[in-house]
Design a protein around this nucleic acid. Sequence first.
RNA 1: UGGGCCGUCGCCAAGCGGUAAGGCACAGGACUUUGACUCCUGCAUGCGAUGGUUCGAAUCCAUCCGGCCCAGCCA
Length: 555
Amino acid sequence: MDDTRAVNFLERIIEEDVENNVYHRPVHTRFPPEPNGYLHIGSLYAINLNYNAARRFGGKFNMRFDDTNPLKEDMEYVNAIIEDMKWAGYDPGNNVFFGSDYFQMIYDLTEKLIERGLAYVCDLTPEEMHLKRGTLTTAGTNSPYRDRSVEENLTLFRGMREGVFAPGERVLRAKIDMSSPNMNMRDPVIYRILNATHYRSGDKWKIYPMYDYAHPIQDAIEDITHSMCSIEFKDHRPLYEWVLNSLDFAFPEPPKQREFGRINITGAITSKRYLRQLVSLGYVDGWDDPRLPTVKGLRRRGFTQSSIHRFLTEIGVSRDMSTVDISMLESCLRDDLKSKVGSVMAVIDPLRVTITNYEGDIEYVKVENSNVNPELGTRALPFGRHILVDRDDFMETPEKGFHRLYPGNEVRLKGAYFIKCEEVIKDDSGKVIELLCVYDPETKSGSGNVTRKVKSTLHWVHAEKNLPCDVYLYSRLLTNENISGEEADWEGAADKGSKVLMSNAVVEESLRNAAPESRFQFLRHGYFVVDIACKPGEKLRFNRIAALKESYRKK
RNA sequence: UGGGCCGUCGCCAAGCGGUAAGGCACAGGACUUUGACUCCUGCAUGCGAUGGUUCGAAUCCAUCCGGCCCAGCCA
């Protein structure tokens, strides 16, 4: 980062604090995921902003697993999250922490809180508590247990810890204000009894602190200065501050919570709950399905680290909820890839072309790997009497504006010669199965002696010397437009993000030795090829990230 | 409707009292060994609306309108 100036409102807040010497410690941010799902593009947005803020001010960045609910969390997720962060370029290094490691500290502080008369054990059932909480427009009423003595509270709380009570039987509540217009301040539950094995602390604890209570303490323990979270936690800020203020003897310079607006990507599902549903119900291959906006999905879809960084920089940060068009993400990828990776020709739906006046055997033609970056070199492709072109590059009766192959029309074959279509061969059902064309030997690419022009250039592959493969066309990300409420119509949603298998597709033979994970840009329509699994026994797979542009569809 | 947050081009987003950056998308043109790429050009007399303060307002004030969040022993 060469610019030390704040680039968004959050950094401006930090900048001001630095200038005013608010903290006598370095700027310190953190990313606190709950290990209950995989990272997605929305998580990356949060990571990016915390990570960059720390870096910009020469501060520190922690990664902390917010694991205070043993019912939902699992080691599978912590490993995946760390892996994805590293892949995305936000390596937390040794600064990986676990909220659960602070359970004892939080417990000890809680006894102090009780001693200060700021928390009490409440015996109300969940239903009773709900009723007494009041509504958005009416105040709540005090719990009958609100005025228990410190001694009784301490005894009861210790009882909770020892497992004397069953889950749901008693909770510890903060004593704040049941008539607060802010629902979060109506004596929130801060500790509950849970009968579950924590993926990390095992069965050591019977009680677990709630997020609203644990989070500020965890931040403070880690010397965090700026705790940035999404805007829906704005209402929780008073509670965050209440907790740390109540524990001021332990944290003289408490961190401050600041909020940013969430982002959505058009047509992408970024809700952990729905993502989990899709995975567990089998509508997608897994968390790494290319139709998902998860880090693993994006990676498989062909996104690069720098394309994601660029995207996150481009969209900025604000307090609003934004819905970024998916085309911006795709644009960032295209921009990154076009100068870094070469192109390759592939035929999705092959149509055989016989060049009737071509008598030679196989001839290798030289093709540039990239038309924007000469450093990517050239490759030799087999050309011969029989080749394959894409079926939609031919129209028997061309519509207006169609300049590709049609009877009587001449086009250029990329890297090879001009060919003219002379005859169309059909099968019994009338389907076009082959085109008979003639080529002009004088028009070889690079020869420089072409005096006439053609209006179109086609991609092609040799009819025999090629690589058959299965092609998956992921036309778009799985959409959430079918979701309404709890139950989503995944059948419909899955159709929208259809995964189409084209088993008869063929690619250049040059791909045979391509390294796994290498990426190639299709020579047409801005398709990108990813997920090339060249391992023995596996089939090649492609996907295209850019849907056909509207203008192509119309023409 | 109690409280909180937010409204600048179709979508992001700069701007922080001195006369509306940029990106994506879109449109037109040039170029081209792919209708891609590249290169030009266009795209808010307008900043949710209405009043007000001011020499001057997207920026300050008031009212209104619209959107989002909150009543888990989830995070």
